[in-house]
Design a protein around this nucleic acid. Structure first.
Lengths: 315, 315
DNA sequence: AGCTTTTTTGAGAGCGCTAACAGAATATTC
DNA sequence: GAATATTCTGTTAGCGCTCTCAAAAAAGCT
């Protein structure tokens, strides 16, 4: 009992005894048994992380940030992938809840899945990242999706383009919808036509753009709503022989390391990806420790326009 | 006890009782408490994964593969990053060992760290990935580093280049050393000079290449030994205004998604990255279940030459 | 039927820890 | 100096599971 008290920093342990205990711990190489601690209903000192796909650059950076922040707080991270499948997501949440972990950082597949309501009402806290849940209230951390879309369109309009097209994939994601909506509102306010091309997947970028550029609505500029989409657009344009930055301007949401390497370099709205992960972890740990306000916390982090050449700016 | 036996598939439970137990489990939504199971000295049904950095594309793909393979076997994955720091790695291994996990998939920072010897001698199995441990014997999964380097050099020589330079970063890694060594041996056997530029980090690529291309040893072709290095070389060459594929040929170890997007497209030795992760997980699970031979298993997976334009092949 | 063998079920203990309580040592007050 | 409050240490119990062992039920045998 005295050892337990010493380790957990309880009051009512004399300095002398505490020192003796510490010495013995070091000498014997004692490590408290986590299983036993969990069994007595204490914290597991671990959190769960559920993302659609760790191999996606966006989520791999988030994973790294979450893992680092968790470790700094003495927590370990259980990694799971939802594979963009709500059923898998549900199963992973269920398993984590019973594992148990003390909390979950989650990038939901679909912000309206009913199982999220159950999960959010559960005993362990959940913080969503990149995409908030619409049908339940949890803490959430997102980038300024609307502001980012506005910045993108504003920049393109600053170049004098009036025929601007929004190309999107993953439209089921709330974050993407917000970007598309902001795009449309901004152009409507500017009394310009807000045209959009919603793709079911990245493979349909080439046929989609082929017909788009063959039509009368051939755009002067394209706003692509996330990195996968931007890359698909770049590839399609290359295949079609349409020169980015000259024949058509391009701006993407999400910055990617190789945008500085390809020619032309790609102008992008950059999200503070690591910051998203760190902030989500911080919020979650606060909840776990019973801190934080009663109502949900919704953090929105600023994005930045990284001006390069694909919008027609330099060189 | 009967419930425990039913769940764990012990013999000596009558069919009738088993059915009743199953029904009750479903009805009550019973889930066995993992903490209690762990406490009784059973398996934790989880494995640890320690990589230098999850945000690195190579390791993020491996992480995904490990996670998938583990889930298929009913195992969960604890993620940790060593940040390329042996001390951090040691701490992470230590923590996982006490977590406890049933086994660890590890990409060691340094294949000669003494703490790896301790870890390898520990009670839980370890499988190394991408880099094997030199001072202890554990199962390992690697790509054909030497064969890959040979293929790269052979391809460059096939183009008639005789002044071939090897550029490397992360030379402390065994996998990189193997590639460099194979490069040297191949050229020596061909009676050609085997010149190399070992960089302490990617930031020194620009100064390194600047002086290299200013010197009398200006290369006709470059073999870059991993993706980080290849990217650094591409950036440096772009800065120097040296045209890849025309002024100098380039071939990289590790294939990266955007090599098909930049111009010229980059020729590369492609590793079966997902396969590495899956195989490592399979080996580890076999060890956990007490299968596998007494001696260590060392798996080497084949690599492939992906011919593109940077070596001067196509345009 | 009476016995042994096999199958099936249950009772008891303990894994390592911490909450709750009790008792001992020390400090504070009147 | 006695009564109280405070600080410190140790004892007991129990978290939910599985191991061991024992007993009950069923099956097989003479």
């Amino acid at each position: 009992m005295t050892v337990s008290r010493t380790i957990n920093g309880h009051p009512y342990v004399s300095d002398a005894t505490a020192k003796r205990v510490q010495a013995a711990i070091r000498k014997l190489g004692y490590r408290p048994n986590l299983a036993a601690r969990m069994l007595t209903g204490q914290l597991s000192k671990s959190i769960g992380l559920i993302v659609p796909n760790v191999a996606d650059p966006f989520f791999s950076v988030i994973s790294r940030a979450v893992q680092q922040a968790a470790r700094e707080a003495g927590y370990t991270v259980w990694l799971a992938a939802s594979d963009n499948d709500p059923a898998t997501e549900e199963a992973e949440i269920e398993q984590m809840t019973h594992h148990p972990v003390d909390g979950i950082v989650l990038a939901p597949v679909n912000c309206r899945s009913k199982h999220l309501k159950v999960a959010a009402a559960g005993s362990i806290p959940i913080v969503t990242i990149d995409r908030s849940i619409e049908i339940a209230s949890t803490d959430s951390v997102e980038a300024e999706n609307r502001a980012g879309a506005n910045m993108a369109v504003e920049h393109l309009m600053g170049h004098g383009y009036t025929k601007i097209h929004c190309v999107a994939t993953d439209f089921h994601l709330r974050s993407i919808r917000l970007r598309v909506e902001a795009f449309e509102e901004y152009l409507r306010r500017a009394k310009l036509p807000a045209r959009k091309l919603i793709l079911s997947d990245t493979a349909s970028a080439l046929p989609g753009l082929t017909s788009l550029f063959g039509s009368r609505q051939r755009p002067q500029a394209i706003f692509a709503t996330n990195n996968a989409c931007t890359i698909a657009v770049i590839e399609a344009l290359q295949t079609l022989g349409i020169r980015i930055g000259r024949d058509v301007a391009l701006i993407g949401f999400d910055d990617v390391n190789f945008y500085t390497i390809i020619r032309p370099t790609i102008t992008a709205i950059s999200q503070p990806v690591s910051e998203l992960g760190r902030t989500a972890t911080r919020l979650l740990l606060e909840r776990i420790h019973g801190q934080g306000p009663a109502e949900e916390v919704r953090v929105t982090l600023p994005v930045a326009l990284i001006t390069r050449a694909s919008c027609g700016c330099k060189r």
